[in-house]
Computed example of a mutant assay.
Amino acid sequence: MSRVRPAKFKELEIIADFQAAMALETEGLHLDKEKIILGIEAVFEDPGKGKYYVVTENEDEVIACLLITPEWSEWRNGTVYWIQSVFVKKEHRGKGIFKELYQYIQNLVKEDPELVGIRLYVERENKSAQAVYEKLGMNGEHYKLYEWLK
């Protein structure tokens, strides 16, 4: 039985804590928790924005999460899932937890003809995450991400 499942609204605080910890750990950013909570609530209220998935241990302890957000691709006439907001509790890292999440999402894509792929972005300095993604068969050779944020 898979330990991966869609997140429940009651897990919002856990997801918010994970996101604050991830931002601090990977980018040295201290995020406003209230803003994070509002952002997560918006996803639960509008599934068109995305969907959270969690990994549980002992059936109820959330040990990891990620967010998928859809992007329409006219070139592929289908939707690409972007993986975002990945977090695995430190004590569970290196045990294949992200691989479990990734394979779950990959299977969703394989089973739905309207879904055509998976993308994610990673901080340039996050070499350990890049190694994990490459080991799963992803590559970062095709695009370079640029952004402007208000």
Score class of each variant (00 low, 15 high):
Met1Val: 05
Met1Ser: 10
Arg3Asn: 13
Pro6Met: 07
Lys8Val: 08
Lys8Pro: 06
Phe9Ala: 15
Lys10Gln: 15
Glu11Leu: 00
Glu11Ala: 00
Leu12Tyr: 04
Glu13Met: 07
Gln19Cys: 05
Met22His: 05
Met22Trp: 01
Ala23Arg: 08
Ala23Val: 01
Glu27Trp: 03
Glu27Cys: 08
Leu29Thr: 11
His30Trp: 02
His30Met: 07
Asp32Met: 09
Lys35Tyr: 12
Ile36Lys: 14
Ile37Val: 15
Ile37Ser: 01
Ile40Gly: 01
Glu41Val: 06
Phe44Trp: 00
Asp46Trp: 02
Pro47Leu: 14
Lys49Ile: 06
Gly50Arg: 10
Gly50Ile: 06
Thr56Tyr: 10
Asn58Thr: 06
Asp60Trp: 00
Glu61Leu: 00
Ile63Leu: 02
Ala64His: 01
Ala64Arg: 00
Leu66Asn: 02
Thr69Pro: 04
Glu71Asn: 07
Ser73Lys: 08
Ser73Ala: 08
Asn77Phe: 09
Val80Ile: 15
Gln84Trp: 04
Ser85Ala: 11
Val86Glu: 01
Phe87Glu: 11
Lys90Ile: 03
His92Trp: 15
Arg93Ser: 07
Lys95Gly: 02
Lys95Glu: 09
Ile97Gly: 02
Phe98Met: 07
Glu100Ile: 05
Glu100Val: 03
Leu101Met: 15
Tyr102Phe: 15
Tyr102Pro: 01
Gln103Phe: 09
Gln103Trp: 09
Tyr104Phe: 14
Ile105Phe: 07
Gln106Gly: 01
Asn107Asp: 07
Leu108Gly: 04
Leu108Met: 09
Lys110Met: 10
Glu111Cys: 04
Asp112Gln: 09
Pro113Thr: 09
Glu114Ser: 10
Val116Thr: 13
Ile118Asn: 03
Ile118Asp: 06
Arg119Phe: 10
Arg119Glu: 13
Leu120Met: 15
Leu120Asn: 13
Tyr121Lys: 15
Arg124Pro: 13
Ala129Asp: 00
Ala129His: 00
Ala131Asn: 08
Val132Gln: 00
Glu134Met: 12
Glu134Thr: 12
Lys135Asn: 09
Lys135Asp: 01
Gly137Phe: 11
Gly137Ile: 07
Gly140Thr: 03
Leu145Phe: 12
